[in-house]
Design a protein around this nucleic acid. Structure first.
Length: 663
DNA sequence: GAAATCATACTTTTT
DNA sequence: GTATGATTTC
C-alpha cells in the first residue's frame, strides 16, 4: 500500500475516480500535479500495470516533474515504466516501432519548424524562382504556419486562408502547388514534420493490424493541459478511447494560451459529452495568498467569456501585489533587481524567484542589468540556439550521416564548400541520388567525412560521429563567421551532449522534439547546485511556481502583444496569458509597467525609436485596486545632455586640433 | 551564368 | 543576427 501525501476531498475524489473517462477541471494552483500523480499511483495500486499507462504532457519538463512526483508516491522503478512525454514524442515512439505497418520506414528524420519553412522555400523555388517583377512573395514562415494550421485544425486551405490569412487568398493556387510538392518531397526523402508525427500516429491507431496491439498495450491515458491540445490531438484521444483505453484529462479553460498553435478550447469544453466523462472540479487554490488571487481573479472578471469558477484561496493572508510604474525599461530593470536582491537578503533563494515576460526580447535590458550586478540567471523560452546557422550546419551534416536522402540537408551543407552556391548544390544533390559522378575536387573531403562517420565502425558512438563530422566542418564554420571561436564552442557543447545519447538518431530526434529550453540546458551539471534567478516567457512558465514573481513590460502592445490584436479571441488569449503569469506567484507578485520602452521600428532612417506606452488594458481599475501602487521615479537625464568636464590638457589638444582646421 | 558581397528590412508565444 | 534582394566579381 502506498501512502500518498494528504489530499483534499476534491483531489481525493479525482484521484480515485473509478469506472470510465474523467475530466478534472483544475484551476491554477489547485494541486493538479499532486492529483495527477496520486491518480497514477491509485491506478497502479488497483492493479494497472505501469506499462499500460500513457502519460501525455505538454512538455518534457512537465513529464519529468510529474514522474518525479509520482516516484515519491510509488517508487522510481514503477513511475519510470509508464509511457510518458509530449504528444509528438509519443507519436515518434509509436511510429519508430510500428511505422512499417503504415508504410513508413522507421529511419525517418524529423523536421523542426525552421526546417519545415526551409523545405517549403526550397520546393517553391523549384517551381517558381524569385521574379523581380513580381511583388514580394509570401515568406516561408507564413508558408509553414498556414499549412500547419490546415493540418492541425483539419480544415481545407481556402477556409484557413479566409479566416486567418485573407491577404494570401490571391496566392491560393500557388500555395496549393507548393504544398503538393512539399508533401511529395517529404514522402520520397523520408522526413516528417511536427504535424506529420501526429497525423501518422492517428493513422496508425486506425490501422486494423495495429489496433489490437495498441489496445492490449495501453489501457489508461492521462492527458495534462488538455485545453492546449488541438483538433488532431483530440482525434488521437478519441481513437485511443475507441480502443478501450480509459482517458483522464486534466486542464483549465482559463489557462488556454496556445491558440496560435491551433489548440482549441473545445477539446476541454466538449470532453464530457464527447467521451461521456464524469467531471471533477478543483477550485481550492493552495499555492497563492488571497491577495495574489484577488488580483488574478480581477483580471479574468473582464473576460468576454466568463469562467464560472473563481479560485478560492486556502492560504492565509499575505502581502498585496505591487503595481509599479517605472519611467522606462531601465528604471524597470533597476526596480526588479532591487526587489530581487532585497528578497534574497531576506532569505528567499534566487531559485524561488522569477521574472516573466511576453516575448523573449523584453528581457534584454534586464539581462544587462543582472549581469552588471552579478546576479546569476537562466533564461527559458525563446532561445534560438538550434536556429543559429552554425548549429544548423552541424545538425544538417549529422542528418546526412543518418539519412542520405535528406535533400534539404545536402542543400545546406554543400553550400559550405567554396564555389558551391544554390545552383550547384541542387545539381550535385540530384547527381548523388542518381549515382552519377561529380566533378568537383572540393566535394570528396565532405563525402569522406560522412562515410567515416557513417561506417558501422566499432567505436561509432554518437559523440565520435559528431567529432568526425566536425573535422570537416569546423574550419568552414570559422571561416564563414567572424566569431568562429564562440561558434565552435557551441559545437563543443553539442558534441558533449551527443556523447551521452544512445544513438545518433536518438540524439537528433531528441534535439528536434525536445530542444534545449534554457541557456543552461546544454552546459551540463556544473550549474545545478548554484542559486540562480529564472527568466522565462510566460508560455514556458506554464505549470511552474515561485515564491516571488515579477511580471515586466505590462504595457499595451507588449501584453497584449500588438501582433495579437486582430481578433477579439486573440486578445482574450492574451488576457489568459496574464492570468497564467499572475497565478505563478506564491507570496509576492510584482506588476511592472514601463512608460517608455525601446521599440524596434523601421522608420525611414532605419533608426530604432522609443515608444510611449500605456498600461496594459488588462490592468483595470479593479485590478489596480487589489494592488499597492508606486509611480515612476523621475528619470535621470540622458548621458549626452550632461555637462562633460574637460581636463586642461585635453582642452589644449582639442584647441590644437581645431586650429588645424582653420585656414 | 553562378557565386560572393553588400545593403536593407525584420524580429510572438512552441511541439 | 539573419534573411532577402541587388550589385559586383569570378
Amino acid at each position: 500500500m502506498f501512502a500518498p501525501p494528504a489530499l483534499t476531498d476534491e483531489q481525493e475524489q479525482a484521484a480515485t475516480h473509478a469506472g470510465g473517462h474523467l475530466l478534472i477541471v483544475a484551476g491554477a494552483g489547485t494541486g493538479k500535479t499532486t492529483t495527477l500523480a496520486a491518480r497514477l499511483a491509485h491506478l497502479v495500486d488497483t492493479g494497472v500495470a505501469p506499462e499500460q499507462i500513457l502519460l501525455l504532457t505538454f512538455s518534457r519538463r512537465a513529464a519529468a516533474e510529474l514522474t518525479q512526483r509520482a516516484e515519491v508516491v510509488m517508487g522510481a522503478r514503477i513511475a519510470a515504466a509508464c509511457w510518458s512525454g509530449t504528444f509528438h514524442a509519443m507519436a515518434n515512439r509509436f511510429l519508430r516501432r510500428y511505422g512499417r505497418a503504415i508504410g513508413l520506414e522507421p529511419t525517418f528524420t524529423v523536421l523542426d519548424q525552421a526546417d519545415t519553412a526551409d523545405l517549403l522555400a526550397y520546393v517553391r523555388d523549384e517551381h517558381q524562382p524569385p521574379d523581380a517583377r513580381r511583388r514580394r512573395r509570401t515568406n516561408k514562415d507564413a508558408l509553414a504556419a498556414i499549412w500547419s494550421r490546415c493540418v492541425n485544425t483539419r480544415r481545407p486551405l481556402v477556409e484557413v486562408l479566409e479566416r486567418w490569412y485573407p491577404w494570401c487568398l490571391d496566392d491560393a493556387e500557388e500555395l496549393r502547388v507548393v504544398y503538393a510538392a512539399y508533401l511529395r518531397r517529404k514522402h520520397t526523402h523520408r522526413v516528417l514534420d511536427y504535424d506529420d508525427l501526429l497525423l501518422h500516429w492517428w493513422a496508425l491507431l486506425r490501422t486494423p493490424s495495429i489496433r489490437p496491439l495498441v489496445a492490449e498495450q495501453i489501457t489508461h491515458v492521462l492527458v495534462d493541459e488538455v485545453q492546449d491540445t488541438n483538433a488532431l490531438q483530440g482525434d488521437i484521444l478519441a481513437e485511443l478511447a475507441a480502443l478501450g483505453a480509459t482517458i483522464t484529462a486534466v486542464g483549465d479553460d482559463a489557462q488556454a494560451i496556445y491558440g496560435f498553435r491551433a489548440a482549441t478550447v473545445r477539446n476541454i469544453l466538449d470532453f464530457p459529452t464527447r467521451f461521456g466523462a464524469d467531471v471533477v472540479t478543483l477550485t481550492r487554490n493552495h499555492r497563492s495568498t488571497p491577495e495574489v488571487l484577488a488580483a488574478a481573479n480581477a483580471v479574468m472578471a473582464d473576460a468576454l467569456e466568463r469562467h464560472p469558477k473563481d479560485l478560492r484561496a486556502e492560504r492565509s493572508s499575505g502581502a498585496r501585489p505591487r503595481l509599479v510604474t517605472a519611467h522606462d525599461e531601465h528604471a524597470q530593470a533597476t526596480g526588479v533587481c532591487d526587489a530581487v536582491v532585497e528578497r534574497m537578503e531576506a532569505g528567499v533563494a534566487l531559485l524561488q524567484q522569477a521574472v516573466l515576460f511576453r516575448t523573449s526580447h523584453h528581457s534584454q535590458v534586464l539581462q544587462v542589468e543582472l549581469t552588471l550586478r552579478n546576479i546569476p540567471f537562466v533564461v527559458y523560452g525563446g532561445l534560438k540556439f538550434l536556429e543559429a546557422s552554425h548549429v544548423k550546419d552541424l545538425v544538417c551534416a549529422l542528418r546526412l550521416v543518418e539519412n542520405p536522402a535528406d535533400d534539404l540537408a545536402w542543400f545546406r551543407v554543400l553550400q559550405l564548400i567554396d564555389g558551391i552556391g544554390p545552383t550547384h548544390a541542387r545539381t550535385i544533390t540530384a547527381a548523388l541520388h542518381n549515382h552519377q559522378s561529380i566533378e568537383n575536387p572540393h566535394l570528396s573531403p565532405l563525402l569522406a567525412a560522412l562515410n567515416t562517420a557513417r561506417a558501422p565502425a566499432l567505436r561509432a558512438t554518437p559523440g565520435a560521429q559528431v567529432a568526425e563530422v566536425r573535422r570537416w566542418l569546423d574550419a568552414r564554420v570559422e571561416r564563414r563567421h567572424r566569431n568562429g571561436a564562440a561558434r565552435t564552442a557551441d559545437l563543443d557543447r553539442l558534441e558533449q551532449a551527443a556523447g551521452t545519447a544512445p544513438s545518433l538518431e536518438r540524439f537528433l530526434t531528441d534535439l528536434t522534439l525536445d530542444p534545449p529550453s534554457s541557456t543552461g540546458d546544454l552546459a551540463g551539471p556544473p550549474h545545478l547546485d548554484d542559486d540562480y534567478l529564472t527568466l522565462s516567457t510566460i508560455h514556458s512558465a506554464k505549470g511552474a511556481e515561485w515564491d516571488v514573481v515579477h511580471l515586466i513590460h505590462l504595457a499595451d502592445g507588449c501584453l497584449p502583444s500588438d501582433m495579437a490584436t486582430g481578433h477579439p479571441e486573440e486578445i482574450e488569449e492574451e488576457r489568459r496569458l496574464l492570468h497564467v503569469a499572475m497565478t505563478r506567484a506564491r507570496d509576492d507578485l510584482w506588476l511592472h509597467v514601463p512608460l517608455r520602452y525601446h521599440h524596434h521600428r523601421q522608420n525611414s532612417r532605419g533608426r530604432d525609436a522609443h515608444s510611449y506606452a500605456q498600461r496594459s488594458r488588462f490592468i483595470s481599475a479593479a485590478v489596480a485596486s487589489e494592488c499597492d501602487e508606486t509611480f515612476a521615479t523621475p528619470p535621470t537625464p540622458p548621458a549626452e545632455t550632461q555637462e562633460v568636464a574637460v581636463a586642461p590638457a585635453v582642452a589644449e589638444v582639442q584647441d590644437f586640433l581645431a586650429g588645424l582646421l582653420e585656414a
